[in-house]
Design a protein around this nucleic acid. Structure first.
Lengths: 126, 126
DNA sequence: TGACATCGATTACAAATGTAATCTATTGTG
DNA sequence: CACAATAGATTACATTTGTAATCGATGTCA
């Protein structure tokens, strides 16, 4: 499979809620995701479990309720998911991926400006 | 799982060779991928099979040898993989993904220029 | 021509993933 | 206090994926 941090599709959904709102209780994740995804609450609990087993989540028992929080940084997961995406789809090279995304996505003029500014300050590879 | 075109990690490797060199025979794919990935030839044949079953590949029998070729466009698969990546990791919004990729990847000055040009001509979302 | 080497097809099997049901302990409530 | 609702834990099961071994037809070489 490859290195650690193997977060599956469905698990990303859960983690996105956790990262956004943590610390959260299971019920909150269920409220956010069950409806839109057509998942039963059991399904979401399973995923919380697996994420704990994978050492991506931890929980502490605040009094009665369990509170879940992430124990890996979102940015690390984003980095590794991006790497894997680039390797898989674009043979590891970012430029074609960027071209593709720029071409196919809707951007506001602010976003375009922001990107342009980023590029202006971009350290260039020799 | 979601829509069609569910190409797995390992399958992408195979498809990348096929798209690049098609029509190809199994042996060619094996030559390209077995060594670097530590895969046996059987493994690669399995993947060719599954890709045929998934209607991503077809083969025609040119005389004796089988020749494999893709029957879905790479660009379609790229689009769908990108979509799925964006949805999963960036909640569907391209801009943060682009920022991230621009920040974290090495680009040559030509690539930066190219991107800048793309952005210059970018139709902006109202 | 007979034994071996290949190639594609079929079968195998464990781990990961999607998707839950059930079991158990805790808690709110009449 | 008894009992139902709830929350988290455990168990379940089919599908997908990674990774092959094996089988059967064919072609090859001594």
């Amino acid at each position: 499979m490859s290195e650690a941090l193997a977060i599956s599709e469905a698990e990303w959904q859960v983690m996105n809620v956790v990262w956004r709102d943590q610390p959260v209780e299971a019920q909150h994740v269920i409220d956010q995701l069950a409806e839109p995804n057509g998942w039963s609450s059991a399904t979401i609990k399973t995923m919380l479990h697996r994420l704990i087993k994978k050492k991506v989540l931890v929980f502490d028992q605040e009094g009665k309720r369990y509170l879940y929080r992430a124990c890996v940084k979102r940015s690390d997961c984003v980095r590794q998911a991006s790497r894997s995406f680039l390797d898989r789809v674009f043979g590891g090279s970012a430029a074609p991926a960027l071209m593709h995304l720029v071409k196919t996505s809707k951007l506001t003029s602010e976003e375009v400006d922001q990107l342009r500014r980023l590029l202006d300050h971009k350290e260039v590879k020799s």
